[in-house]
């Protein structure tokens, strides 16, 4: 297994380099101008100077190599300095955002907490809801519970979050006034009061996203359970006189979880990607909103860095899912 992991890690290096090159080329070939959102009252010669100040004067390959150096050398060095108080990266140029003129990673780090709490929490809640629903739906197939569960997951999966989000705001913020419609990213949880505030402002975005996640995962869980319930070993277990609870929760569930766990693992990178639409609707202003505003502003360094981080996460979690598969199912061996 270790051998396999190391081999996969080594292969992923050229894969990631290729991805970074493709992202870079796509972004630079795409139309758009970082100064397009500046007013028309700026004269063209001033505009030209501003562009040069962003570093747009240098040839394409120089800019790519510079970005590679900054991403793989300067930024890790800076992170090391920050952790251990050393001074290796002093004077080195970090990746600067064109919108903010500040290091891209500082803003990313700033956006992490709200994305991880809101989107991460919704993923956890989604999984916690989905697994029991999937189990019961499969065990009592075509029962009322199964029908309702299917209906809700259809809604959760097919109704877009920009609709459910605004609907919730109109009902719970405008009419009832229970929850704030705008997320306060400066709120620090220090006591019971602020904790309640945090729960209130998280309630609606977490609900919207959890519904969406749960809808998807509960379907996987249900079909995986159905597959296993037909198996011979289930009949054997019952024939041996085991209780239904043991059959279901010990034998069937464990085997059914194998594909579901990998699906869940593959979904983890999307947490870091944020939820672009839901973050916009509730003004959570996490990584998703950061990405979309950077795209609108043609902030190439920011978009490039964010998408590349997502690419790294996807590659890593693919590997994690594969390894988990081997751990959970002893029949699968990679060596």
């Amino acid at each position: 297994m270790l051998n396999y992991t190391i081999r996969r890690l080594i292969i992923s290096i050229p894969v990631l380099l290729l991805i970074s090159l493709i992202i870079f080329l796509l972004l630079n070939l795409a139309p758009g101008d970082p100064l397009a959102n500046q007013p028309l009252t700026i004269p063209p010669e001033v505009r030209q100077k501003m562009k040069e100040a962003l570093g747009l004067g240098a040839p394409l390959y120089v800019r790519y190599l510079l970005w590679l150096k900054q991403f793989f050398w300067v930024e890790p060095l800076h992170a090391f300095d920050w952790c251990f108080g050393t001074h290796f990266s002093v004077g080195m140029q970090r990746i600067l955002s064109w919108q903010f003129r500040s290091p891209v990673f500082d803003v990313i780090v700033q956006r992490m907490p709200q994305t991880l709490t809101v989107v991460g929490m919704s993923y956890v809640i989604g999984v916690l809801i989905a697994v029991p629903i999937g189990i019961v739906s499969a065990y009592r197939q075509y029962s009322w519970f199964d029908q309702i569960g299917t209906f809700i997951s259809m809604i959760g999966y097919s109704v877009p979050t920009f609709f459910t989000g605004v609907l919730l705001i109109v009902v719970f913020s405008v009419d009832l006034g229970w929850f704030p419609s705008i997320y306060n990213t400066n709120l620090k949880v220090v006591d019971w009061q602020t904790f309640l505030l945090q729960v209130r402002q998280m309630a609606m975005p977490v609900f919207v996203l959890a519904l969406y996640n749960a809808a998807q995962i509960s379907r996987f869980m249900r079909s995986s359970m159905l597959d296993n319930l037909q198996q011979d070993y289930v009949r054997t277990a019952r024939a041996k006189g085991m209780g239904e609870r043991t059959v279901l929760l010990t034998h069937v569930l464990r085997n059914s979880l194998i594909p579901v766990v990998t699906v869940i693992a593959l979904g983890v990178p999307t947490i870091f990607g944020g939820a672009i639409i839901t973050e916009q609707v509730f003004k959570v202003n996490g990584l998703g909103q950061l990405l979309i505003t950077a795209i609108y502003a043609s902030d190439v360094p920011m978009v490039q860095t964010l998408t590349f981080i997502f690419a790294v996460l996807i590659v890593v979690f693919n590997l994690v899912a594969d390894i988990l598969y081997g751990v959970l199912d002893p029949r699968i061996r990679y060596d």
């Binding site: 705001i169 704030p180 419609s181 609707v281």
Partner: peptide, 18 residues
């Protein structure tokens, strides 16, 4: 505060009063 869209900002001033 920044972010969201014009409709949401209008809602926050005219309707919820936040």
């Amino acid at each position: 505060k920044g972010g969201g869209d014009a409709a949401a900002a209008a809602r926050a001033v005219f309707q919820t009063g936040e």
